[in-house]
Design a protein around this nucleic acid. Structure first.
Lengths: 267, 267
DNA sequence: GATCATCGTATTGTCGACAAACGTACAATA
DNA sequence: TATTGTACGTTTGTCGACAATACGATGATC
């Protein structure tokens, strides 16, 4: 014990070395909730899917207690519903939900441009670079006809928008709204589908920001969200017939029993 | 058993009698969550208060399991934080939170006027009547110098706004935002305080709606929310000195150990 | 005298188990 | 044949208990 203290003169205060990022000790409930969110996003848990607690808990390698707590959290976020004595079910979004969610996004997202442009120039460049990267991801996905990759880039684009245009709280809320948006897609279409115009629309967003034209950005975003609602609420079958080549579809993740949901060991 | 069936010819199909409202069976977790929300709203659980799970569960007359599930739900709503191994704590709102919450409300509430005015005339009258009632409650509370009653009427006014101007989802979200607003008051002031101008401001809201002037309504609401932020973020002590007579204060509910939180029997 | 180490305690995080409730299948009756 | 009653199996809702961990106090050492 005195050995350790004897060397103390050779040490420097940790504060001088550099700011250590605080140890991220995420609770088990957090892990489970995050895992469930991922499963909802990637379609492993399709809307309407009902899963027994015991089965899910076994797959996750935890007991039912923490799982139930995570379920409650997802329920409060509006992603899950808990039918009485029926385990848990992924929420099925109704046309009303689709309108609601996009209305809310339309209240928030157009304003984010203004807030991003209000930031210092250096940060603005960072934001533009990041958003540009996401658009490039979308373009690559479009070339590969990879609907899923395009959808993921879409999510990340808007996540970045919220992260830079808002606060932590706003980012969290937008994150939930975006997951709900994807649930809308899953609920409305049988397959996962995105519209091909998505990419050019988002490229225009970035251009507007680059031109520091907040008003134009707001108009574009609002128009995009409006268009999304119309696309989602149009009869899916009819839409597929009418302009099949303008949609990018992917075979559904389907009701596959959510493979590999294990948590990292040490739980 | 055959006795009961013998009389069947005298009965009519239930569907013909009238639509029975589905039986509302609220789960224990729902009850606990609601009780905790109430306690946060009325100040029985002041911001920063830490309570042990065992103690709380005992007071509520339930075991720790359902209580923990309810805690997770309130956590997702942003009302509670769960410090590691420290039980549960009511969230303390920072100035940043105050700005966030009111910014979000300012994106949503001004638009609600438009949506209310888009309703059929008969419903519009109902809404106006209801909002007028809340304003009268506020006026009565003002005359009695009852800050708490005024604050409660304020909550109900805005709840009604969301209920009539939005959807179920929107009402739920606004409900949470309103509770958070009250947490802002608790967090910023030591005592519960409201501004006297609140009543006239809200009377003006109703007048604008009655005049079917959605634009004016939007401007007024946004101005009100803006003013609220400034009032909340002004140094409380300084504010009390400067215009003490324009504030309505109430001795705090204080750290009283949340009396009477029992759930209805049968649990 | 101050800092550090150690111990004890209280509380949480997690798990397993029990009982009640629900759904389902089958049989009986009108 | 359609509807109702019954019994069974499965799953949830709830509780109690155990172990791990963090905190506070006390004592020891430099």
């Amino acid at each position: 014990m005195s050995d350790r203290n004897s060397g103390v003169s050779g040490l420097v205060n940790a504060r001088q070395v550099g700011r250590l990022a605080p140890v991220r000790r995420t609770s088990t409930v957090d892990l489970i909730a995050e895992r469930l969110r991922e499963a909802v996003v990637d379609g492993s848990l399709p809307p309407g899917a009902v899963l027994g607690e015991a089965e899910l808990a076994f797959q996750l390698g935890v007991s039912r207690g923490p799982l139930r707590e995570a379920m409650q959290r997802l329920t409060a976020e509006g992603l899950l519903v808990i039918p009485k004595r029926r385990g848990l079910a992924v929420r099925i979004m109704t046309p009303e939900d689709v309108r609601d969610i996009h209305w809310l996004r339309a209240r928030i997202e157009p304003e984010l441009g203004r807030r991003i442009l209000a930031r210092p120039a250096a940060e603005r460049r960072t934001v533009l670079a990041e958003l540009g990267t996401e658009v490039k991801r979308m373009q690559r996905a479009l070339r590969k006809d990879d609907a899923r990759a395009l959808g993921d880039a879409y999510l990340d684009f808007h996540r970045a928008l919220a992260a830079w245009g808002g606060s932590l709280r706003l980012a969290r809320m937008m994150g939930t709204l975006l997951i709900e948006t994807r649930l809308c897609t899953f609920s409305m279409y049988e397959h996962f589908e995105v519209h091909r115009d998505l990419v050019s629309e988002h490229a225009a967003f970035v251009e507007a920001l680059a031109a520091e034209d907040a008003a134009r950005f707001a108009v574009l975003v609002e128009a995009h969200l409006d268009a999304e609602v119309r696309r989602l609420l149009a009869e899916p079958e009819a839409a597929k017939e009418d302009d099949a080549d303008r949609l990018l579809a992917e075979t559904p993740a389907g009701p596959q029993p959510l493979d590999r949901l294990d948590l990292p060991e040490g739980l």
